[in-house]
Design a protein around this nucleic acid. Sequence first.
DNA 1: TGCCAGGCCCTCTTTAGGGCCTT
Length: 208
Amino acid sequence: MPNANTIIILDFETTGLSPNQGDRAIEIGAVLIENGVIKDRFQQLMNPGFRVDGFIESYTGITNSMLKDAAPCEEVMNDFADFIEDYHLVAHNASFDKCFLDAELKQISRSYSGQFVCSMLAARRVYQTAPNYKLATLIDYLDISVEGDYHRALYDSEMTTKLWLSMLESLCVEYNIAEIPFELIKKLTKTPKKSVDSFMQRWKSTSY
DNA sequence: TGCCAGGCCCTCTTTAGGGCCTT
C-alpha cells in the first residue's frame, strides 16, 4: 500500500475537450510529491495518430512537427501508468483530466486505483474571495512566482502543485492543524462552500 | 476558435437554465 501522503499532480494537453468526440492526449505532465516535497517528475509528448488543429497548436505551443516523432499515446501512457502506480491523484478541474486518463488507459487495458481530487473544487472552498478559479488567476492571486508557459503539461502540473501546497498551508494556519490528510481535502471538495468552516471545525474536534 | 463535452455550482432552483473550468 503506497504512502497516502504521496500524491501525483497531473495535467494533460489534448487535441480537444472530449475523448468521447475522438480527442486524444498529446502531452502528459506530472509531479510526484511526498509529504509536501517534490520527489519526481514526468513529462512526455505523445503522437495521437492525426494532425492537431491550429487552435491547439497556438493554445499549447505543441506543434504537429513536435508530435511527428513523438512516441504513440499507447507507449507513453503505459509508462505513465507505471509512474502513477496506485497513488492518489490531483488535477485542476480534475473531471477533465480524469476523463482523458480513463480513456487513454482503457485503450491499453491499464487502470489505477488511486482517488482523484480536484484542486479547483478545493480552491473554491479555501479561497472564497478569489476573482475566479482559473489556474493562472489563482497563482497570481496567491502571489506565487511564475517562470514558464501555461498550457504545457509539466508547467501546469508544477503550478497546480504550488496551488495545492498553498491550500494545505492556508488550512493548517487558519485552523491550527499540523497536517491535512488527502481524505480531508477530498471531503472538503464535497462540502457546500458556506459550510466549509463548520466542516473544518468539526473535523478538527474529532481528530485531536 | 467558438460554443462541438461534461461535472460542478449558483439561483430569479429542485418538473431548469446558464456560467465556469478544462483543451
